[in-house]
Simulated scan of single mutants.
Amino acid sequence: MNLQGAYLGMAAQAVSLMGEPEVAASWEKPSALAEMTVGALAGHLMYQIFSVSPVLQEPVSAEEPIALLEHYARAVWVDEPLDGELNTGIRARGEQLASEGAQPLLEQAGAALAELQVQLPAMPGDVAVFIPWGGWALTLSDFLVTKMMELAVHMDDLAVSVGIATPEIPGAAFEPVLTLLTHLAVRRHGQAALLRALSRAERAPSAINAL
Rank of each mutant, 00 (worst) to 15 (best):
G89D: 03
P65D: 06
A75H: 00
R200K: 07
A98E: 04
M149H: 03
V129N: 03
E63H: 09
A159N: 04
A92C: 08
F174I: 00
A111R: 04
I49P: 04
M123F: 05
D126N: 13
N87P: 00
L8S: 12
L86M: 13
L56V: 12
D126M: 04
Q13H: 02
M18L: 15
L86A: 11
A137Q: 10
A67C: 01
V38E: 05
H71P: 04
N209W: 11
A207D: 15
G135Q: 05
I90C: 01
G125V: 02
R188W: 03
G101T: 02
A12T: 04
Y7T: 05
A192N: 03
I208Y: 04
W133L: 11
V60L: 11
A42C: 13
L116R: 12
L3Q: 07
P124Q: 08
E95G: 15
V52H: 09
Q119P: 03
A111P: 01
L3P: 01
A201T: 07
S199G: 15
E22S: 12
P121M: 10
Q108P: 10
K147F: 06
V76H: 07
F50G: 11
A128E: 03
M123C: 08
E28P: 00
A193L: 01
L151Q: 10
S206P: 01
R74W: 03
Y47R: 15
P59M: 08
Y47H: 15
F130R: 09
E150D: 13
N87T: 03
G39N: 12
S61F: 03
G19A: 09
F143M: 08
Q117L: 09
Q96W: 07
L180T: 02
T37A: 12
P205T: 03
A75G: 00
L69M: 13
M155Q: 14
G101C: 12
G89I: 01
P30D: 10
R200G: 03
Q191N: 11
E202L: 07
V162I: 15
T37F: 08
A137R: 04
I49V: 15
L120D: 07
S206F: 01
S51G: 15
L82N: 10
A111Y: 00
F130W: 09
W77S: 13
A92Y: 05
E64N: 11
P21I: 05
G125W: 05
L86Q: 14
L211Y: 13
F130L: 10
L33C: 15
A122W: 01
L195C: 08
L68H: 05
G9D: 11
W77R: 12
T166Q: 11
E115C: 09
E58I: 05
V186G: 02
P54I: 08
D79K: 07
G134M: 14
E35A: 14
N87R: 14
M46K: 05
T166Y: 05
H189C: 06
A73M: 08
G134S: 15
Q96Y: 09
V186C: 00
G171Y: 00
L120F: 05
R188H: 11
M148R: 06
L198I: 08
R91Y: 06
E175M: 10
A173R: 02
I90W: 10
E80Q: 12
